[in-house]
Simulated assay, not measured.
Amino acid sequence: MTAVLPDTLTFDRLETPIGTALLVTDEAGALRAFNWTDYEPQMRAWIARHYPKAAVRNGVSPLRAAFQAYFAGDAQALATVPWVASGTAFQRQVWDTLCSIPAGETLSYAGLAQRIGRPTAMRAVGTANGANPVAVVVPCHRVIGANGSLTGYGGGLHRKRWLLSHEGASFREVLAA
């Protein structure tokens, strides 16, 4: 089945406690991309590759209130946000599985690989996790190292730390030697 590509994408900017977020929604109100303004050039290039015929306009996302509620303290506010992500079948499987990690909990890459029935695919799971175009809604920040430590996050470890703390999740700080 071929995914229906949007005709129009709305680009919204939302101030958050950890920087200005970019919300990209389609005409049906589904989130198509999420990132931070410090990654805007990469995000625009990604949008041009995945949605080359879509008109991009500035506007207010219909999802803005859900994001505002989340950043104001409601860790469950994004649980029902509709999203559509452009990716391979394997990536979409990983992203769907990420949504099974509740706010306030974390999972290791090995645990995520086991959940999708591919226990030896930890690296591939990590790569798919890093390619997630709808971060925060598809909670890639909830994946941490096997020892409970923070590991890479496309938006920066400072944001991952904040998001996990905001949701009440436990993790381990590992200081550089």
Rank of each mutant, 00 (worst) to 15 (best):
M1V: 13
V4Y: 09
T8V: 15
T8A: 14
T10N: 08
T10S: 06
F11A: 00
D12T: 10
R13W: 13
E15S: 08
P17M: 00
I18F: 02
T20R: 06
D26L: 07
A28L: 04
A30R: 04
L31A: 10
R32A: 01
A33G: 09
N35S: 15
N35F: 05
W36D: 07
P41Q: 07
P41D: 07
Q42A: 13
R44D: 12
A45R: 10
I47K: 02
Y51V: 06
K53A: 14
A55L: 11
R57T: 13
G59W: 10
S61R: 01
S61G: 12
P62K: 07
P62M: 13
L63M: 07
R64S: 06
A65M: 09
F67Y: 12
F67G: 12
A72R: 08
G73F: 03
D74T: 04
A77T: 07
A79P: 02
V81Y: 00
W83M: 00
V84R: 08
V84N: 05
A85M: 09
F90N: 06
Q93P: 05
L98N: 11
L98S: 14
S100M: 10
P102Y: 02
E105I: 04
E105K: 11
A110R: 10
A110H: 06
Q114V: 14
G117V: 13
R118M: 14
R118Q: 14
P119F: 09
P119Q: 09
A121F: 14
V125C: 13
A128K: 00
A131C: 07
A131Q: 15
A131L: 12
N132Q: 06
P133H: 00
V136N: 02
V138M: 01
V138D: 00
P139H: 12
R142E: 07
V143P: 03
V143A: 03
I144M: 10
I144D: 08
A146H: 11
N147F: 06
N147E: 14
L150N: 13
G152V: 08
G154M: 04
L157K: 14
R159E: 08
R161C: 02
W162T: 04
L164G: 03
L164N: 11
H166P: 13
G168Y: 05
A169H: 02
R172W: 02
E173K: 04
A176Q: 08
